[in-house]
């Protein structure tokens, strides 16, 4: 597969990712409450909300880690509900984890190569015989991995390829997670707090990177972020969640000044005194 290119006719008519009336509860606690959400092709949508609002759960539902209790989740018009996570990844939804989950004892480049499993084919018979086709595919996998890592400038280049992932700094681990997700050749990237734990300059860098991912990489991006500067800098559209309910949606300015959002973040009294 080549890089996913935005197809002009679908941008207006049909959203790439679509959630309709999605519910999820854990033992009586409703975490996602009748959520509708649409992400158009080549768009960057941010999800904000206080801790425990259900943002990560939203990602877990999209990527199939939990099934929704009810409702529809569609990627490019096809339902994802009930598919196992690896199939959803093949359909084109890739994510990063809020609590990093790299393959720590594998090398940097192996991390990125491993996640190409879904789009490659050579089985163990051909691998045991090391057929020319197998070797060609192996070279392609490596080339693609290098290409993904090159996206991050010098950060993950050169000698770092063959270092174990655990030797990376925190910020580089976050970058590697993004590279690993990119390597599944997704149509939509789901980034769970990509700037968490980064210092201001790294945060700034990640903001630019997300824009570059859309502009140069051609990905559609759904991102969870707490840092309002990042959200402001990258978002075409912002969705605010609270207790699993979508309480606001629109441009950053509109959502950030929405009284319900302010209330959710600061508590009722703050909203009233304002």
């Amino acid at each position: 597969m080549a890089e996913p290119q935005p197809s002009p006719e679908s941008t207006q008519t049909k959203p790439l990712l679509e959630l309709e009336g999605v519910w999820k509860s854990f033992g009586g606690l409703v975490v996602i409450d009748n959520l509708d959400l649409a992400v158009n092709e080549n768009e960057i949508v941010s999800v904000i909300g206080p801790n425990g609002a259900g943002k990560t759960t939203l990602f877990n539902l999209i990527t199939g880690i939990y099934p929704p209790d009810s409702g529809a989740i569609r990627l490019d018009g096809e339902s994802l509900v009930g598919l196992p996570p690896h199939k959803i990844a093949r359909r084109g939804a890739a994510r990063t984890f809020q609590t990093l989950r790299l393959f720590l004892n594998m090398t940097v480049i192996e991390n990125v190569m491993a996640s190409q499993y879904g789009q490659t084919k050579v089985g163990i018979a051909r691998a045991m015989l090391r057929t020319p086709g197998m070797r060609r595919e192996e070279r392609e996998i490596r080339a693609r991995a290098e290409e993904k890592l090159a996206f991050f400038g010098e950060r993950l280049m050169g000698y770092r390829w063959d270092q174990p992932a655990y030797s990376l700094s925190y910020a580089n681990r976050r970058r590697l997670e993004i590279a690993r997700a990119m390597a599944t050749e997704p149509r939509i990237l789901l980034l769970d707090e990509p700037a968490a734990g980064m210092n201001p300059s790294e945060t700034h860098e990640i903001t630019e990177l997300i824009g570059k991912l859309r502009d140069d990489g051609g990905y559609t991006i759904l991102v969870i972020e707490h840092d309002m500067h990042v959200v402001e800098g990258i978002s075409d559209r912002v969705v605010a969640l609270d207790h699993g309910v979508k309480i606001a949606e629109g441009t950053f300015e509109a959502v950030a000044t929405n009284p319900r959002v302010v209330e959710a973040y600061l508590g009722t009294s703050a909203a009233v005194t304002k």
């Binding site: 996570p85 690896h86 093949r90 790299l102 393959f103 491993a114 499993y117 599944t184």
Partner: peptide, 13 residues
């Protein structure tokens, strides 16, 4: 290393 992350990265665990 991490079965869940592997599954999400398109590996049929």
């Amino acid at each position: 290393e991490d079965p869940l992350a592997a599954e999400v990265m398109s590996i049929p665990v």
